[in-house]
Design a protein around this nucleic acid. Structure first.
Lengths: 234, 234, 234, 234
DNA sequence: GATGAATGAGTATTCATTCAT
DNA sequence: GATGAATGAATACTCATTCAT
């Protein structure tokens, strides 16, 4: 899980950041990462009902170690959320850096959906988990201005309908993630079909139809999706 | 739950009937219905994590009775699924009865999404639960022809783009359900906003933009949704 | 454990009492008694730290059964407390029935200490566990008037010093129980030695010589002690 | 904790000493003292359930250091016990130095009870914890002669009943500690009331009326009680 | 047939103790 | 020697499922 490896490990030299109360010992940090990776994988496989024992086993550590690094299950999931949130913010900022407003918005939707699509745990976390007041606040505080700017910039350029709002964007991403959740085991890219559909509804006055890039699921694939799809039932 | 009430109850004497293993005794069938109703209500409120004791209590019977009527929790949920599936088929047939093809398709999407929106467990079931081979097959067998007809009829009438497929329809419903799952505790009708958006992308060449019928969530409502939203985390 | 066997089982005929919501099924009540007995024994042996699994094992039932009958560990111990409390009240009433005031007070102290002495769990419960407000209140409400009467009656008869208070009595019992706790494995009756010593300090002759230096706890303080006292229950 | 501070620290160089395995390095000894102090405070507050992590934190050292200095939790508590034992012996010796035999005995009882009263863990230790054979032996070896002398001296002076024994004294202290444990959160000095009561039963005049019914524990029995007594230490 | 009592594997979490850094 | 990271057995409690009444 490349995303996790590269994050939040202070390089040996740059410890002058000084915000973190104390950098973890090398091995502790390594285990922290292992735990996050394992959590991500296990949760992706078995959903949020996965046990911390499973996570610990996958990470190759004892349960106690998980509890040493995270106050509890919810906190561990919260850490995952925080990490992914940073990625989303980065995605948003890259999208804002895009000179063309339309391309910017589209690339945000695409990259955000791609991120969610690649990680089921993240979809569940973003879509279904109630978090503590502060985490939710942080998420909003970081993402909202970026997304707001993306939308209003596109509206000012006349390429997006005037009644679209910034809060519609996460909904679009959730909806795409829901589609992805369903189709992924059969044909992972299916969600792009619905992104295209969605984009078709965005221009103030649509002129030409975009041909849908992905074929629909065949009835057989559809059935197969229903059988091996995400299991939340215990 | 009207659908449940109306199920045909075989008279005690005519057990010589062909396929059905044996018609239930009058009181047994009454209990079966009570259990399904109770399950429907309890699961709609609390989702799939509701306990069978809760269901039994709500139904006014003992747990043992639930197990006498259904092999287990999954089977009970499966029966609910079947019931809802019938509702969906009925919805589809009503939509087909609609003379105008476009109105027919739209009313199907609307009614199907409405059904999912009112029942949390149903959303979870449809979106996340893997069912047995036969149930999935039955679902497909019953729904697919109806939906296929709805789509092709609309395409023949020239009011829907040619590259839309029947399997896109359940995806649309799932996506709307995902939106509903998220926004429901704050503003339950929000999903209609996204149905409108979606419909805007369906015509072969869109002429006028449909004004979105529901306002978007305010940032504050958005945050509140994140806090009290569907909790799958135990 | 004879005391437990005879208690709180409604005789088949006398169900007109009607206070209890519903009499337990025969087997359920039998198991309830088994659990209480086992709890009493196990707690007596291993102290309040004994696990409910131990209790269940001793009772020959599964843990779930224990939890079906009692909401949790504390509730189980509370039930034990309630049972013993009834015994104490009965002891107090027998003591009041005694015509001679001095004999009455002495027999209460003796019988109460005997009760505590025979059951270590009870000693711990009475001495160390903080219970819910209502249980403590019930204990006080039932015992206090009886004990108050025992003391004042003896004082009126001139056989007990005037500065003794009703709240001194439970303290005496606790102190004897502490002695019993210690000496029991070696010589179980040792506490009687200290009861005799204590009784020697009660006649009024002594109060002239040494007035008691600290005021006794008021009934309200006593109750407050029962509520915030040392909690050894985990 | 004055007693702890004053312990003799062998100089680094003179490790050729006889019995002591090896004098600790200066800093090691300092840590040992810090740990004992911290343990004393933490245990006094929270009782024996306090964790070693708490102790280590309070002492400003790592848990590992605690384990380097003491084999385990029980050993640490044992060391505390030893320390308190020294205090008791000192108290006893001060009491013996008292010219008046009665005052001597009373001041021992008072000071000993005061010591126990101030430290919850100590109460638990003295009253409930079974210690290793050697610790109990040491306790007896050190305390018994002092207490025996205190008692017999008072008896010789004619101010204490003849049937009192040395082993009655620790029982008196335990009983007072039990009272203290109970009343402490409400009115900490309450135990003095019961000390006064107890003292009232000691003069020889009393023994004429009621000969004590049970023999006292012999010193050997006392020791045996200390070893097999109720164990609350986990 | 109905009931609800009994079961016990499973879950999150804690803490004394060990061991790598 | 000191540190604190890692360990995992233990504990209270839940709930789907079975079975005696």
């Amino acid at each position: 899980m490349g995303t996790l490896e590269g994050m939040s490990i202070d390089e040996p030299g740059e410890d002058c950041g000084a915000v973190t109360p104390r950098p973890l010992r090398r091995d502790a940090e390594r285990n922290r990462q292992r735990i996050l990776c394992a959590a991500s994988e296990v949760l992706a496989e078995r959903g949020l009902d996965a046990t911390l024992d499973d996570v610990a086993h996958k990470a190759g550590v004892g349960v106690g170690t998980v509890y040493r690094r995270f106050p509890g299950k919810e906190a561990l999931i919260g850490a995952l959320f925080d990490d992914r949130l940073s990625s989303l913010v980065a995605i948003g900022e890259r999208a804002l850096a895009e000179p063309d407003p339309w391309t910017g918005l589209v690339s945000y939707l695409e990259a955000a959906a791609e991120l969610l699509t690649a990680d089921r745990a993240l979809r569940q976390i973003l879509m279904f988990t109630a978090f503590g007041r502060d985490q939710a606040a942080r998420a909003r505080a970081q993402l909202q201005p970026v997304v707001t700017r993306l939308v209003s910039r596109a509206q000012d350029a006349g390429c997006v309908r005037a009644d679209l709002r910034a809060t519609d964007v996460p909904f679009a991403v959730f909806m795409l993630a829901a589609a992805a959740d369903y189709a992924r085991p059969v044909r992972p890219a299916t969600w792009r079909r619905y992104l295209a559909l969605l984009l078709d509804s965005l221009p103030p006055a649509r002129s030409a139809t975009t041909p849908l890039p992905e074929p629909p699921l065949s009835p057989a694939e559809m059935q197969s999706a229903m059988q091996c799809g995400p299991v939340y039932l215990r």
